[in-house]
């Protein structure tokens, strides 16, 4: 799979409260409405700056904190096609895979805000046009890649009549 998009750069330890605040997740059930508040406490007005297919780029421990699935839902519905980070927190990682939101683990130090990035998941790299460098991706375990390919855990579960490890 080849993807192209623009980088929105964030730092380390982006927790799920930052991704979608408890102020919204408890009262808004519509994913499109939730998406309007994505990353709002860190970067007010962020939603309006996203173009469909952009990437969210961050440092280590992305998605730490609460188990709220509204976090990957808000990211996905805001038009972000993948999150590229140095590492992901465990529950967020599972949630994103389950919902079919693509996560890419690689060294993101060289990527800057606004960089045009090209991702090739088959060949396993992220290419930055700005610095002309390719960064290798840590591949997803086969089972998780299959869940993403099936379009999330529910489709995977229905397609195989259970889990196919």
């Amino acid at each position: 799979m080849k993807l192209k998009g623009c980088a929105h750069k964030f730092g380390d330890a982006i927790n799920t409260d930052y991704i979608i605040s408890g102020r919204y997740k408890f009262r808004i059930q519509d994913p499109k409405e939730l998406a309007k508040h994505v990353m709002e406490d860190l970067r007010p007005g962020f939603y309006k700056t996203i173009k469909k297919g952009d990437f969210l780029v961050a440092g280590s421990n992305f998605g730490c904190g609460s188990s709220r699935e509204q976090a990957p839902i808000a990211i996905k519905n805001a038009g972000i096609q993948a999150v590229i980070a140095k590492s992901f927190a465990r529950i967020f990682f599972r949630n994103a895979i389950n919902l079919g939101l693509l996560l890419i683990e690689c060294n993101t130090s060289g990527f800057k805000q606004g960089d045009r990035l090209e991702v090739d998941t088959d060949k396993g790299y992220v290419f930055s046009k700005a610095n002309g460098k390719k960064v290798n991706i840590t591949p997803l375990p086969g089972f998780m890649a299959r869940i993403i390919k099936d379009g999330g855990i529910i489709r995977h579960f229905k397609k195989h009549g259970g889990f196919k490890i």
Partner: peptide
């Protein structure tokens, strides 16, 4: 801790 979809799958299948 799990997310909601993970929990729903667990609830439905017991696993």
């Amino acid at each position: 801790g799990f997310g909601s979809t993970d929990l729903a799958i667990t609830l439905a299948s017991g696993k």
